[in-house]
């Protein structure tokens, strides 16, 4: 995932779809390093990304827009070797995916914007929960999804 760039609705939603593909992929290595409630939270988060991926594929293909393909693998920003690095990556995945939906908010209107905002809010809250699980302080950032 690279930084989201402003574009038309189809481009922004296509970019959000690539972010969802990468997020789903990343939860593979995250999940295997977690146990108990944290592993369940990872499964729930992955399911949320899969739901949005599926809706985007349907929406983009029925709208006649090009649907970006998933890749066989993605480069992680840092190696995931234990619980602590898995939790840090989970925070990172949620924040980065949130950034693509934030860009989609600006590029869309009406129901599409409502859905994009709901995704941004959902992932920002998940990032906060992951920080709490990881013991990272502060739990929040001032502008979720805004490029640093």
């Amino acid at each position: 995932m690279t930084a989201p760039t402003p574009a038309g609705p189809a481009e922004a939603l296509g970019a959000a779809l690539t972010a969802e593909f990468a997020a789903i992929w990343a939860y593979g290595p995250i999940g295997v390093r977690l146990t108990g409630a944290a592993r369940k939270a990872a499964r729930d988060a992955e399911a949320a990304h899969r739901r949005r991926r599926d809706s985007l594929v349907v929406q983009l293909s029925t709208g006649g827009a090009s649907v970006p393909p998933d890749r066989a693998g993605y480069t992680l920003p840092f190696p995931v070797t234990d619980r602590a690095s898995a939790l840090r990556l989970a925070v990172e995945v949620e924040e980065r995916t949130a950034a693509f939906w934030r860009a989609a908010v600006a590029a869309t209107t009406g129901a599409d914007r409502d859905r994009a905002l709901a995704a941004l809010v959902d992932y920002a809250v998940r990032a906060t929960r992951w920080r709490r699980t990881a013991g990272i302080s502060p739990l929040t950032v001032p502008f979720p999804g805004r490029p640093a």
Partner: peptide
């Protein structure tokens, strides 16, 4: 309008994360 929407989206999301925190 589009040029304000992203900022307002981040503010809405931030307040949702405050609720969680």
């Amino acid at each position: 309008p589009a040029e304000r929407a992203a900022l307002l989206a981040s503010i809405a999301a931030a307040r949702a994360t405050h609720l969680e925190a």
